[in-house]
Every structure is written in C-alpha cells, then in structure tokens.
Design a protein around this nucleic acid. Sequence first.
RNA 1: GGCGCUAUCGUCUAGGGGUUAGGACGGAAGAUUCUCAAUCUUCAAACACGGGUUCGAUUCCCGUUAGCGCUACCA
Length: 518
Amino acid sequence: MALNSPVRVRFAPSPTGHLHVGNVRTALFNWLFARQNGGTMVLRIEDTDLERSEARFEGMLMADLKWLGLDWDEGPDTGGEYGPYRQSDRLEIYREHAERLLSEGKAYLCFCSEEELQKERESAAAEKGQAIYSGKCRRLDPEEAKKRRSNGETCAVRLKIPERPIRFHDIVRGDVEFSNEVVSDPVIVRSSGMPVYNYVVVIDDALMKITHVIRGDDHLSNTPKQVALYEALGWPVPEFAHLSTILGADRERLSKRHGATSIANFREMGVLPEALMNYLALLGWAPTGGTREIFSAQELIKEFSLKRVTPSPAVFDMEKLYWLNRHYIKEASPERIEKLALWYFSREIAPDLVKPDETSAPDYFWPPTIINWFGSITRLLSPYVDRLEQLPDRAKPILDYDAKAAIHSPDNAEALAWPHTDAVLARFTVKILEDEQAREGKLTPEQFNKIVSEVKAETGVKGKELFHPIRIVIMGSHSGPAFDKLVPILEEGSHLDMPTHVLNVRERVEAFGKARAK
RNA sequence: GGCGCUAUCGUCUAGGGGUUAGGACGGAAGAUUCUCAAUCUUCAAACACGGGUUCGAUUCCCGUUAGCGCUACCA
C-alpha cells in the first residue's frame, strides 16, 4: 500500500444488538486513528448473517456510536463514494469477483459434500494432526467442473492458497508468518450462493480502499486467508492492526455473564460517554511516559498512537471506569448532570413516566420548582457517586424518610444507646417544635445551627454524641451530607407537590418522636 | 490435537542490557469533617519458570508453563 495514500479505516459491526464494549473499543481506535491522520472513517454493516441480523439493530448501533461521540464519514446513512455500505446490498459485487477468480484459475469449484468433508477432516486430523481440506476438487478439470455446475450440481467456490508461507505486517504485533501447510483452501462462496465472511471482508475493504484494517485479534488467524485473497485478486494488501481481546475479571473473554458490557448498559447506569471513551482508550494503550490518565476526545486524537497499542489482552476494570466517571461527573456542567439526573429521579418516583431506552429526562412533566429542587439534590450528591443511577438511592433519606426504620436500624443502635442521646434529643425536639420557622417548613440553616448550638450549650454534649443522634432523627442515619445543605432541601421539598410528600425537619422530628414513644 | 497470539504490582500500564522498575485504579494508614463520602498525604504491592547470549539480563534468543484466539459451506 502506498505510504502516502490517504488513511481510510472502517468499523464493520454486525447488527445483532447493542454494541459491546469490545467492539466499541475497536471503533474508537479506528476513529482516533482516522481523525488523527485526517483520514476517512467508514461504517459498514455486516449483515450477511441473515438469521441474526435485524434492521432495527442497525439504528441502535449507530445511536450507540453517536452517544459515545464517534462519527463516520461514509456509511449506510450518510452514503459515500464507495457504497453501498450494507453487505446485503453488495451480493452482486461478491458474485462477480468470485466468477472472476474462477475464470482466472485462482479459485475452483468444490463438489464435496458435507459428509465427505467431515470424514476428510477427521482422517486428516488423525494423520497430520490438523484438519485441513485435501484440495481434492482443486485437481478437477475446470471445464468439466463448469459443466457439472451448469447441469445443476451444487458446489461451493474455493480459493487456491499458494504453496508458500504467507506473511503480513501487523502494526501492533510486528511481522506475522503462517505456513501454507496449515491453511486449507477456504470456501469463499457457499453452495447456497451466499458468500463467506472472510471473502466479503476482503472485497469490501479493497473496494472501499481501506488502508488500515484495525480489528479484534480474533481475526488474526484468518488474516492469511485474506492476504491470499488480496493477492489472488491482484489488489494491494492493507496494513493490519489486531487489537487484543478485552477480558472479564476471571480472565475469560468479556461477555454478558460479566454484567454490564453493552453501551446501552453503561448509558443506563449513568456512565458519561467521555468517561467511557477515556477508559476504553486506556485499555491497551498508554501515552508516552505512561503517567497520564485523563484525556478528552481531542487530546486522545492528538496523543493516540496505534504503534503504542499493547498486544496483550486487558481485563476490564469497572472500578477504574467508575473512578474516571466520578471525575467527569465533577467536571461536567451542573446543568448537564442535573438534566441527566432528572431521568433517574423520575424513574424512581414515577416509573411510568420514563421510557427505558432513553436517558433524556421527561422535564415537560415536572413543574420548574420540582426540577430545580431535584437540581439542588443533584448538586449536593453528584460529586460523591460513581454513576448517576446511584442518585435516587443516595437521595432516599430525603425523598422517603422512615422513622421506624431509623429507630430499629442496627447501624443506629449504638448511637441511640449513648448515655447523652436522650437528653440531646429531648432538647432538640422541644426546640424544633417550638421554632417559628420550622413550623412553617421554612427553617433556615442558620436557625438550625443556632438550635444545635443551644442544645450543645444546654446539654454540654458535643461532637459525635451531639450530631449523630440529631442526624438519625433528620436523615434516619448517622452519616450523610452536611446539615446546612440538607435543611433547605428538606424544607423546600415539603412545599412541593410530589407523588410522595417530602417531610420537612419539623415533620421528621415529630414522626421520630411518635415512633420512638411506641 | 494442530497453528497463532500473549506474559511487569490484584487490575490497567510506563520502561528497557546496568533504574531505589515509574504512574493510575483498587487496598492499607494518616490528615480533614459531627458522620459517611469526597479530597489531600503516606505506605504496601510486580518483571511467570528454565536455559542460553553477555562482564551484566526483567529487557535479546530458545524452550516450558499458563491464558486467549483460530482451526466451518459462523461472523
């Protein structure tokens, strides 16, 4: 391939569902490489597996890519010079080239039946230790074979593998060599007339002028067949870059068994796209120096290098993703996070309102007062969550106070049994119940602090022994956010028209008192 | 089975013939705070094994082992 030809890369997923992190990482590396070199990114849909492919998945997959922030210059939706970009629309092209190969003697017709091949594989395996095709039909007279085909005999088309080792260069692995002894003549067109994957990829990549084939290393062993095809076709062989597999914690290939693995999963969890992109980039790649972890998309485009991609497989580490996500949640504009968070809150308190497959909030439903109120909760809690989906749970003590649970919780037992607890709570309760502001549900943080100081002065109790019991009364737990942020949220919440009434400070004190009296 | 790929802290990785083998996540400890979290500081933690080559290998070569992939008229 000419050194200075413009870079063209492709991402070629099968439309069989939501995009998987492994595939997305491949897409990302392709994209980074294209963008960094001013190249072209092609999206091609590999839908020759008719049984598993579905049209609606194509839309999902493109939505997944866009969500992550990836785009493409040519594809089924955008069109382009080298279309069509769906393999199912290219069947005629594949057929033509197979015929050409046949007429040039680079391929031959194979009439072997399934049973025959099966038997042959077994005996070859027993003899040579490997199950390769004998090439029996290779020796057939082409004219004779043609006649048999036109007489209606079913046959497949096989490529002739040359009698010499096949070498190719891989950017991440260096030079790779396969002995021709181990690759049998591959079928390129099935007897059904459907072309085979290893064949169509080559046709597509070549015709689409792909200069760099960046894909998963599960294709590495197939590459010699493909190289042989390029050569048979008389086309330039592209550069290859085979990316290592992403593994789960058990060192097995990452799969659904390992929990969240699809882009949709991460989006629903409240992982920000920039966090996922950053994390995925770090899986198998590190910048020179290897000390930097945080990269924006633009910075990745600048710093990324295919040559620095590691060949060894990487274990997907959810914790590190969460760490990055925490970083980006704090980094993001509060407005954006609030908007996203609204979806999770809505799902929690009004599940009927939200559609499972979108993460945009139904803000048309809530009045601005409630949206703003959720906004303040989000601002209060979001710096401390790994992912946005944790927000409703963290906000549970605000949204849904339960005095009985607070009293009976084993976590609270110790604090409630402290010698000064009763005195503190007695004073605190009286003061809250007497307070003008609290009666109205308009207690200010200043007034609240004043009351706490008075309790401190009157009981002589301070620190933990003072705060823990009070916190248990207000939040149902001895740990939680600072009171001066919390009190206004509680007070404001009690005035809102929520599906479940939010208790203000006074109501909480009352409820706790009643529950404890029993 | 055959062929191929891979092998640095638990994990992601930097490095590379002579280094105190660096960073990050996670872990531990401390600081801070009423508490949890967050934050900051500190600490522990690795060159799979065996042979070469070499004055010297974690680094280069060869094996072993392990993991993964491919071995289809799957993609």
